[in-house]
Structure formats: structure tokens, C-alpha cells
Design a protein around this nucleic acid. Structure first.
Length: 574
RNA sequence: CGGGCUAUAGCGCAGCCUGGCUAGCGCGCUUGACUGGGGGUCAAGAGGUCGUGGGUUCGAAUCCCGCUAGCCCGACCA
């Protein structure tokens, strides 16, 4: 492609609305333009990258035995009512009515396609002989995000590969899952992304049933907990925390707790400042309504609650923070002064809260706290649980080393669904004995456009994008330094044509611009290989070939340039 | 959905507080000349419903009220 014939609107200045590097660079390098909040146009250069990544995904899905198809984005709302996801999605589900003749139809725009595909399968698969099968599509998904942000990283309309496996046995499901998991690793490797598979929510099947693929990035919205020693990695909702070393309550500390006045100090911050004690010496008491009944959750002062863990530990379905009235009832005090001593509701204690040897707690009285509270002495502890979010420095659940926390961008998710959708949409098969069972499903997603944004977010330097080879919009960028120099242009055109014939994607910057201007644009759009052709080099009979990611310049005889570039590319592709 | 900020040329911004004549600056864009290895120089130009609706005023980009859009923080994110 000749630059003068395509559409690459680069910008020298950073648009004010862009905060994160990927958003800034994608705007500046002419990959995308915003239409409205959460909706972006993919310009020619950006769209080429989307297609490159899509093709990698497609190849690896096919290699893993998945079959491509294409389903409608426009779907009847009834399907979501049958699976209960109309409520589960809530406002995230785009849905609207439209008149057709004298009928009023109600549609949804697909946020994902479990319903559509399970409905399809339920109509056409009836026997174990037709299973297993994995189907996939690459398609635009719609989610009414409450707050789109970070450019293309979080939008209300995005390209996603979604695959669904249908199995007659758990073994078949596990095989399909492993095949997808391995395909995902290959995909992200080929895209040049550093990625981390992490354990995610376990869902209905339990155990090792879900992994997220995260790209470590400072601006990632998700938190990944990982152990540098043994490789344990999980998302923050899911991450387990090792037990602290056993601390036996010291009997000498069994003196009665003392009441201290803490006027208007109802937060850990305020009380710790007032008393000059660190938050680690506090036990905070959170009052929840667990299945409508009050429950006090005890955590160390500097820790944060993990409601999923609390729900599981307490064996309850619903969990929400209690209102002020409930708190007044069970503690006898306003919000901010709850404590375990004398509280009038069941308590559940985190491992690390129980390990505080002499704690500051609320006194269950307005404007008062207790100091010198010893768990197990001044209140009953019983069994302790893991109830909080993991933090940097917590012990690894596998090897006790210190855990790290990194930000990550979720680019893929594999999930053993089980029979949730097949049951609600009546997708069943009969086994050898003619007994009917719901089909066992898995679902597997990759955010294709998010992958492109993640690449830009993580592969750049101060001058612009540094595309990995396989995801780059073009592989080679030819820069003739002076378009009015006939010899320069003739050489550039010749190399351009030969590379094209060799099946290599080439961009030829044929604009009549100064060299510096072209170099800056070349750095900005960041194509992997640059061939510079100038009068100075031609006098020596050479072109200059340089990787965007490296500083070395290869001076290559003009006649050997095409061959050299082809060798460089195939060597880099391994 | 709560809290905050912003809206003036394609992009980045000044002007607004303290109302006043023709609304400015840099980049970009057009034309020409010189130039040609890291966003070059000179000259001449084009480009604006000052987001939108109302109000105050002799007079509004500027003051007041409503609306809309965008961004940030938080909540949310099968």
C-alpha cells in the first residue's frame, strides 16, 4: 500500500480526552477515531491489525478442532428471559422494541451467544453420537457498559471470538477445555503479548473450572494475584490466601479490654490516627445481611472483604452490607463502632483477624472503642476462614512465599459452564441406554479488539507503537527520503513490488515530506521493519534496514534488500 | 448510578474572573519559492452557529438558569 493512497491520519499532539497510552497512541497513529463514548471507528491501519489478530484466532481455533459459524447479533429477548439472564445482565443488555406490522417485537443485541447457540443445538443435536462438538464465531458484541473508558479497552461494542463446546461427558468437556486453553496460549504468543493465565471463579462445576488470560499492564482494570516462587496465579476475587503462622493467644494478655473515647471517629483511618495505632492492630467488624439475617464479619483493620468468599464460607446465597438500623440493633451503636465483644449476632472470623494478639475494636457504643481485645479470650472465635481479598505480601496458598499483585487486562476467558444453559433451554442428548441428559457445555471468549488495544498498551516506547511482527498492520515500512529523486523512487518502487510479490505486507511512504517528518510518523505507527532509501545510501549502493524494536541499522546492498528482509522476517517468525 | 471537571478552527490551547469595536495563539491545512537523513525556512491565504436552548443587558465567548455531549474518580462489569 502506498501511504498517499490510503487513509492514515496521524497526529503530532495528544488529544485531550485520551489518558492511557494505548488510547493516545491509537488516536495519534491513525488506528481509531471515536464516534461517541464507547464506540470507535477502526480506520484502515487499525482494522488491518484487527484482521491480523482475527486470522490468528481463526487459525488456532481451526487447529484445535473448533468449527466456525456466524450468529445474529439481533436476538429475541425471550431467549434471555428463559435463561434468567435478562435480569442478570440488567442494564448491560441492550434491548429495545420495534414495530413489525401490527406486532410489537422485543429485541436484544447479543452481549454473548450462549442462548442463541444452545437454542440451536437443542434443536439439532439429540444423541451422544453427535457429541462432542465445539463451535465458534468472530462477531461484534454489544454491552451497555455503565462507563466505557480507556479508549478501545472498554467499549460498548467490540469484536469478540466466542466458542462453545458441547459434550456428553465431563471427560469430553475437559478435553475441549484443555484444547481451548492451549489454543489461547498459542494465540497470545503469536500476537506477541505477554500474558498470564489465572484461576478465575469456579462456577457450578467447581475446582479448576475457569481461567482468565490476563495481560499485565499498569492500567489494567483487573487485579491479578500471583506467586513468583511457584507460579500460582488467580484473579483477586478468586485468589486464596495461605494461613498465617499459628499464633497462640497469650494468656497474659487476658486482662479486660479498656474502653477509650473516640468521638466522631468511625473509620479505621480516623481511629488509628486518633489513637496512634496502625490499622494492622485493628479488628474491623462488618455487619452484613446474609440471606436477610445479620452476620458480623471480622477482618484485620487493613484488609478488605471478599464477598464471594464470605458467601461461600457462610453458606448463604445473598450477601449485602447491613443498613444503619440493623447495625444499631445488633451493636447498639451507630455505624462505625461495631465490635465483636458483646455483639448480638453470629460472627465469622478471618484467619488474619484471629491472629491479631491485642486488638483495637469497636465498643458497640457510640464514640467508643476497645483496646486490648484478644481473640478467643474476649470473644469466641471458633473456626477461622479466608474472607478477604489477597494483598501483596500475603502468603501464597501453595508455597507460603509472598504473593504479588499486578494489574491486568483480561483478554480471554475459558469457562466450564456445565448444564446451566442446556437445562434452561432444554438442550439434551440421549446416551447408549436411551437415557436423556442435559448437554455439558463450556464457553471460551477472546476480546479481539481488546487484544489489539492490549498490544498497543504494552508494546510502545516514547516515540510510538512497537508492533509485534504478527499483529502489525503492515510488516515492512519503506521510506524513500526524497520522492523527487528518480533513483530513490525507482529503487523504492522496485523493492516495494518485489516484497508485495513475495506476499509481505508493505507500506510505502510515498508522500512528499521531509525525512524527519516521515521518520517521526514511522516511529509513531511502529511497523516492525523499516527500509530507508536515500540518495546518501544509494551512492554506496545500499539501503538501510532496521527493526522498530532495535537500534542497529543493517546496511544492505540494494539488490539484496528483498532477500535480506525476507530472511529477517522468517528468522523472527521462528 | 453517585461525585468532580470540561465544551472557543481539524488537533492542542488562551480569552471568561472584571461584558464592549474585527475572537486570538501554536500545530495542521492551501498556494508559491527555497529546501531535502529526525516533525525545515520564508511569503501569501483559507478555515469559527464560541456545544445547545432560554434569560439578564444598550451590548454576552464572557454573567444567570436549563439541556446535551465528552472526560476523570467511584459503584457496576454472566
Amino acid at each position: 500500500m502506498r501511504w498517499s493512497q490510503t487513509f492514515i491520519p496521524t497526529m503530532k499532539e495528544v488529544p485531550a480526552e485520551a489518558e492511557v497510552p494505548s488510547h493516545q497512541l491509537m488516536l495519534r497513529s491513525g488506528l481509531i477515531r471515536q464516534l461517541m463514548a464507547g464506540s470507535y471507528t477502526w480506520l484502515p491501519l487499525g482494522y488491518r491489525s484487527v484482521r491480523k489478530v482475527s486470522e490468528i484466532v481463526r487459525e488456532e481455533m481451526d487447529r484445535a478442532g473448533a468449527i466456525e459459524m456466524f450468529m445474529p447479533a439481533l436476538q429475541p429477548i425471550e431467549l434471555f428471559e428463559r435463561t434468567g439472564r435478562r435480569d442478570a445482565f440488567g442494564n448491560v443488555l441492550f434491548n429495545f422494541e420495534a414495530r413489525r406490522g401490527d406486532r410489537q417485537l422485543h429485541f436484544a443485541l447479543g452481549p454473548t451467544h450462549e442462548e442463541v447457540i444452545t437454542d440451536l443445538i437443542s434443536r439439532h443435536i439429540s444423541t451422544y453420537r453427535q457429541l462432542p462438538i465445539t463451535l465458534y464465531q468472530i462477531q461484534t458484541k454489544f454491552r451497555n457498559e455503565e462507563r466505557p473508558r480507556f479508549g478501545v479497552l472498554r467499549t460498548s461494542e467490540f469484536l469478540m471470538k466466542d466458542a462453545y463446546s458441547f459434550s456428553s461427558t465431563v471427560e469430553q468437556l475437559n478435553e475441549a477445555y484443555d484444547a481451548m486453553y492451549n489454543a489461547y496460549c498459542r494465540i497470545f504468543e503469536r500476537c506477541g503479548l505477554k500474558y498470564l493465565p489465572v484461576e478465575a471463579e469456579s462456577g457450578p462445576i467447581g475446582g479448576d473450572a475457569s481461567h482468565e488470560f490476563m495481560v499485565p499492564a499498569g492500567n489494567g482494570e483487573d487485579f491479578v494475584v500471583n506467586c513468583p516462587a511457584c507460579g500460582y496465579a488467580a484473579n483477586q476475587e478468586r485468589a486464596e490466601i495461605g494461613c498465617p503462622p499459628n499464633s497462640t493467644p497469650t494468656t497474659e494478655a487476658s486482662a479486660e479490654p479498656q474502653i477509650v473515647d473516640t468521638p466522631d471517629a468511625g473509620s479505621i483511618d480516623a481511629v488509628s490516627t486518633m489513637l496512634g495505632r496502625s490499622p494492622q492492630e485493628f479488628i474491623k467488624t462488618l455487619i452484613y445481611l446474609a440471606d436477610e439475617k445479620p452476620l458480623a464479619v471480622l477482618l484485620r483493620g487493613d484488609h478488605t472483604a471478599n464477598e464471594g468468599k464470605i458467601r461461600r464460607a457462610a453458606h448463604v446465597a445473598s450477601l449485602e452490607l447491613a443498613d444503619a438500623d440493623t447495625i444499631l440493633q445488633v451493636t447498639g451503636a451507630p455505624v462505625g463502632f461495631a465490635g465483636p465483644v458483646g455483639i448480638k449476632c453470629p460472627i465469622i472470623v478471618d484467619h488474619h483477624a484471629a491472629a491479631v494478639t491485642s486488638a483495637v475494636t469497636g465498643a458497640n457504643a457510640a464514640d467508643q472503642h476497645l483496646v486490648g481485645v484478644v481473640p478467643g479470650v474476649h470473644f469466641d472465635v471458633g473456626q477461622t476462614f479466608d474472607l478477604r481479598n489477597a494483598e501483596a505480601g500475603d502468603p501464597c496458598p501453595r508455597c507460603q512465599s509472598d504473593l504479588q499483585i499486578v494489574h491486568g487486562i483480561e483478554v480471554g476467558h475459558v469457562f466450564k459452564l456445565g448444564t446451566k444453559y442446556s437445562v434452561s433451554l432444554d438442550a439434551t442428548f440421549v446416551d447408549r441406554e436411551e437415557k436423556s441428559h442435559p448437554i455439558i457445555m463450556g464457553c471460551y471468549g477472546i476480546g479481539v479488539t481488546r487484544v489489539v488495544a492490549s498490544i498497543v498498551e504494552t508494546c510502545h516506547d516514547e516515540n510510538g507503537i512497537v508492533w509485534p511482527l504478527n499483529a502489525a498492520p503492515y510488516t515492512v515500512h519503506i521510506i524513500p527520503l526524497n520522492v523527487s529523486d528518480e533513483e530513490v523512487m525507482q529503487t523504492a518502487n522496485q523493492i516495494y513490488e518485489q516484497l508485495n510479490e513475495a506476499g509481505i505486507d508493505v507500506l510505502l511512504d510515498d508522500r512528499d515530506q521531509r525525512p524527519g517528518f516521515k521518520f517521526k510518523d514511522a516511529d509513531l505507527i511502529g511497523l516492525p521493519l523499516r527500509i530507508t532509501i536515500g540518495g546518501r545510501g544509494l551512492q554506496e549502493g545500499i539501503t538501510e534496514v532496521r527493526w522498530r524494536a532495535e537500534t542497529d541499522v543493517h546496511k544492505v546492498p540494494v539488490a539484496e534488500t528483498v532477500q535480506f528482509v525476507r530472511q529477517q522476517i522468517s528468522a523472527a517468525q521462528g
